[in-house]
Design a binder for these strands. Structure first.
Lengths: 72, 72
DNA sequence: ACAAAATGTCAAGTATGCATTGCAAAAAGA
DNA sequence: TCTTTTTGCAATGCATACTTGACATTTTGT
């Protein structure tokens, strides 16, 4: 196993900038609060569809919110 | 009523621009040929992780390759 | 025309995203 | 402090992404 790619995000900060709660963002994009929370804390990687609508809701480009990081 | 968001992509063209086969792209991003084929023909929406590594492999930004479209 | 490479597709199985419910802790506001 | 809002976390279940293997069809190259 060479280079493992870890999926990360800057959701928490971007959400704070818009002054939105997890629940408010969740309603905007049509998922539950728990789903937003889980994505935010890195519990799992969202679908590209969900990730895209989060981008739209927060007024950010994809690469500003989501990225891959190398792990050792 | 339900303004349904449909997940679409421009993978086929972008892949052709790089002169890569589905199999070559698949190996680059670490999935199977069938998975690339299925994403390309819109059979399903990839994970944000897979979508991102496809972007990297094709040298494109996310929004250049993937987008949401309104349908009725 | 022929062979090889590329693509479409299908079935069955595994992995994981996401919903739902519920409870507890932390933060914010009065 | 007391109360409300927000967030974390866990279990169960359904939906869907992704794998593996296999076969048919189309495209490309000689």
């Amino acid at each position: 196993m060479a280079t493992e790619q870890i999926f990360k995000n800057r959701l928490k900060v971007a959400r704070a900038e818009k002054d939105l709660s997890q629940d408010e963002l969740a309603r905007l994009v049509g998922v539950t609060r728990q789903t937003i929370g889980a994505v935010e804390t890195g519990q799992y990687c969202p679908s590209a569809r969900l990730a895209l609508s989060i981008c739209h809701a927060l007024g950010k480009k994809f690469e500003e919110l989501f990225y891959l990081e190398e792990s050792k």
